[in-house]
Every structure is written in structure tokens, then in C-alpha cells.
Nucleic acid binder design. Structure first.
Lengths: 205, 205
DNA sequence: TGACAATGTGTATGAATACTCATATTGCTG
DNA sequence: CAGCAATATGAGTATTCATACACATTGTCA
């Protein structure tokens, strides 16, 4: 039985440009190894090798291997969040239909950029332990707010928490499915359009 | 660079009762260790120890450690599938509303039985590599069929592949959320009811 | 430019642990 | 009940791999 929190401090906070480059190179290396050789091939030594950096450098910025995975997840999640938040702001005053459509486009395109990575990150790389929460949790509040300013376009007698719960989950799940789990006979465009329709159907029903 | 498929054959196929008991004991042990000590504590030796079996026995039935995880996933998925298929058969002739409601109940209860395990299995245990497909993929056909026999209750001009795509994803994602990711202020009952409503709203819209 | 901090290096080490194998035990079948 | 196949054993081995550390290089700023 190991100690519950053996986690050491992050060694160093990057201050110079080259340090940031090193950190990025390390994360990129993990992605490359993940894609080409699978999780089991991701060893600290190989990370360093592929990153063109020495093992020591890995440990300058990450207390242990797990921390590298956590950072990778974090980077990915932040990228998604940036895209979504931008769309959220941009469509603060759009109609309900435009709003939903924009969210679906943002979400699918954020993931379609690198579906394989998205897949690997969720199926192979251990991610809990870092505090990354899932999409519906991260965006519940934002969607609740976005919906509350559009109550005119919604069926009345809504409980916004429930509504945001459903919408965030539909958005994540269907976008995910549209990008990497489409059944035969459903194109990417079909899937996106149907996702928009289904969310609107729910909101207006 | 490791060989792409170093995977050895499954050593032995259990023929006697005691062999099955051993295999089950091994999988149960993994679950217990997972819950009590976390993934990192799952070593082959510890599995054997907790299972009350020798390491050798583990390797009688599993070519390597990863195969144990894959088998665990498989067992879990098969359990879920059993529950769902039973509900699917039982409600072959129910109304659309009853059908959807039954699916949501089946799905949530299948998972609510052991939410912690469900969570761990998805967030901590590497699962691809085994050929376990996700729920929407596994059940696309079944739902397509179930829906096609209820076209009277659906809005016309449906493309069934798209419809099944949306329904299977909603069912999985919202049930998942209802069991382990409810936002504050949404009870389990609320979440289930809203899941049913949202799916019906989509199907009738 | 000098000096200190930041960053980078990579060999060396030892602990962890996946897996083997020779042997023992148990169950089945004729 | 004999004999063969199935199952179980567990100490030992080989290997992998995370991590430490002592030293080198580079950037910054007075």
C-alpha cells in the first residue's frame, strides 16, 4: 500500500522562452509516441528522446510521469475551453438557434482537429487524479446562464439546472459521436445537423 | 520500437468449474484493489494475493496484465448489455413512451449498481486494445430496429440511422451523467425523468 | 563583462514488477 | 483406480524504467 499523496512539487516554473519550448516539446513528444507506439511505449526516457531533450529536463518541470499526462490533458482541455468560450461570448446575443448551432460547430471542430488524439486521451491515458472535470461539469454554469437569458425562446416552466444538464451532455456526447463514432450512412454534416436539431427540439418541446 | 503485436495467446481456456472460479476471483480481485488502492496498486502479484491464487494461475488464463483489464471491461460491458437486451425484449411491443422510459431505467440502474466501479473503469483502466466498442456502437442496430417498428409514434420523414445515433448517445450520456455527474440541485429522479422527456421530445419533434 | 540564476545534460542506480518454469495437486474418464 | 489432462503453485529471473545527481551550458541584468 503506497502513501496516498507521494506527489512531489513541480520542480521549476518555466521563466524563459526556451523553458516553455522544452515543456511544449515534451508534451508534443508524448502525443507522438501515443499515436505511433501506444501508451505502453510512453516512458520517461523515450519522451526525452523523442522531444529531443534529456531525461533530466523532463524532471525539471514535472515531478513525475503522471504529472506529464495530467499536463497533457490540461493542455487539451484548455484548448477546447478556449474555443467554446469564444463561441459562447460571440453568440451572447444570438438567437437560440444560432447559439446552439454555434456551440455544435465549435465543439465538433475543436475535436475534429485531431480526433485520434481526442480518442487516445480518453481511452488510454489515465486522467483522473489531475483535477480535470468533464465538459458538462465545466460548462454547466455557463450554459445555465446562456439559457437563462433566452427564456423567451424556451418552453416555459423550465428548471434551468436540469436543462443545462441535458444540453451540456447532449452537446458533448453527440459531438463526440459525430466526430468519431458515426454509424454507416450518417455523414459528418448529417450528424452535426441532427445534433443541432435534437438539442433545439428538446429546448422548444 | 516494440513489435506491433507482441500479444501472446490466451494460455488456457477454462474447462473445469474451479478454473472459472479462479478467473472470476482474479477479476474480482482487480476490482477490489482498484477501489481500495488505486490503479497503480494493481500489480500481477497483488492480484494473485488478493484473489487468493498464485501468480502462475493468473498467467494460465491471461497472456499479460493488460488482458486482465480487457477481460474486466468485457465482463462489465456484458453485464450492461444483458440488462439492456432484457429490457429491449420485454418492451418490444410497448408504446414509445414506455419503451424510452424502460431504457433509461435499465441503463441508469445497471450503472447505479456500482457507480464507483463504473467510474474507475472509464477513467483509470486503459480499455482500448480489447475490441470493446462503446454503447452507441454496440446498440445502434437494436435501437434502429426498435424505432423502425414505432414509426407511427415518431415524426415522419425520419432517417432512422440518424435517429438511432442521437438516441443511443443521449441514453448513454445522460444516464452516465445522472448516475455520476449530477449538478447541484438535480436529484437522481429529476435527472432520469428529464432524460426520458428529452429523448421523447427529440423523437416527437 | 562578470556573476548568478535558469536551464539543460545524460549516465548511473536501484527498486519495482511482469512473467517463466519446473513441479505439485486435483479432477476426469474409461 | 490408473493414468492423463487440467489446474495450481510460487520462488526466481530478467527487464524495464522512473528518478537522482553532479556537472555543463546558456541567458539575464547590474
Amino acid at each position: 500500500m503506497k502513501p496516498v499523496t507521494p506527489r512531489r512539487q513541480r520542480r521549476r516554473v518555466p521563466r524563459q522562452r526556451r523553458a516553455l519550448i522544452t515543456v511544449e516539446a515534451i508534451l508534443d513528444a508524448v502525443v507522438r509516441i501515443l499515436k505511433r507506439e501506444g501508451v505502453t511505449a510512453v516512458t520517461t526516457n523515450r519522451i526525452a528522446e523523442v522531444a529531443g531533450v534529456s531525461v533530466g529536463s523532463v524532471y525539471q518541470y514535472f515531478p513525475d510521469k503522471r504529472a506529464v499526462f495530467v499536463a497533457l490533458h490540461k493542455r487539451h482541455v484548455e484548448e477546447i475551453d478556449r474555443v467554446l468560450e469564444r463561441a459562447l461570448v460571440r453568440h451572447a446575443n444570438s438567437s437560440l438557434e444560432e447559439f446552439v448551432s454555434a456551440m455544435v460547430i465549435a465543439m465538433t471542430e475543436a475535436h475534429a482537429a485531431d480526433p485520434q488524439l481526442y480518442e487516445l486521451l480518453f481511452s488510454e491515458v489515465p486522467h483522473r487524479g489531475g483535477d480535470t472535470r468533464d465538459f458538462p461539469t465545466r460548462f454547466h454554469g455557463a450554459f445555465r446562464a446562456a439559457l437563462s437569458s433566452r427564456t423567451r425562446e424556451l418552453k416555459p416552466r423550465r428548471r434551468l439546472d436540469q436543462t443545462a444538464f441535458v444540453v451540456t451532455h447532449m452537446l458533448e456526447s453527440l459531438s463526440h459521436g459525430a466526430v468519431l463514432r458515426r454509424p454507416a450512412g450518417v455523414s459528418f454534416a448529417d450528424a452535426k445537423a441532427e445534433t443541432v436539431r435534437s438539442i433545439l427540439a428538446y429546448l422548444r418541446a
